[in-house]
Amino acid sequence: MDNLKLHYDVNGDDFSVAGENSSKVKKMLKQLGFSPDVIRCVAIAMYEAEINMVIHANGGFIDVDISPERVKVELQDKGPGIPDIEKAMQEGYSTASNRVRELGFGAGMGLPNMKKYTDELNISTEIGKGTLVELIVNVK
């Protein structure tokens, strides 16, 4: 059986719809009969990454690749890039603006949370060009 592939564009200007794609993927995984544990891990990690794309990087696109063994999510943006990934991975580190904080985000918990809920988190980033975040959740 071929893997199921999904593609989404993420609008960077509209915070109110940020996360809708994670919502769609969550529903899809439920329909496909994945375990609640796998669904939860994918949903939380993808949502954090999708929000990051909107609040830090002006949107981009998402590719989801689903197989019975694992779910892979790739999020590519054309944002400013991450100067120091090690620092960004620390709990509490955030460059979010006050506006973002007023919206309930910007605690610097997103990347550590993505790490916690995935089996693999790969980030490649280039300053001024953008960031590619790859999340993999294995089906145990």
């Binding site: 109110s16 940020a18 969550k26 939860r40 949903a43 309930g104 910007g106 550590p112």
Partner: peptide, 30 residues
């Protein structure tokens, strides 16, 4: 703070919040 909800809450809890935007509902869903 939705960041903290995403990081610390176990599932099926009830959320009390003073924050008002669509991300509250989406965070709850996730």
């Amino acid at each position: 703070l939705m960041s903290d909800v995403l990081a610390f809450v176990k599932d099926r809890a009830l959320l009390l919040t003073g924050l008002m935007n669509p991300q509250v509902i989406r965070t709850a869903e996730m």
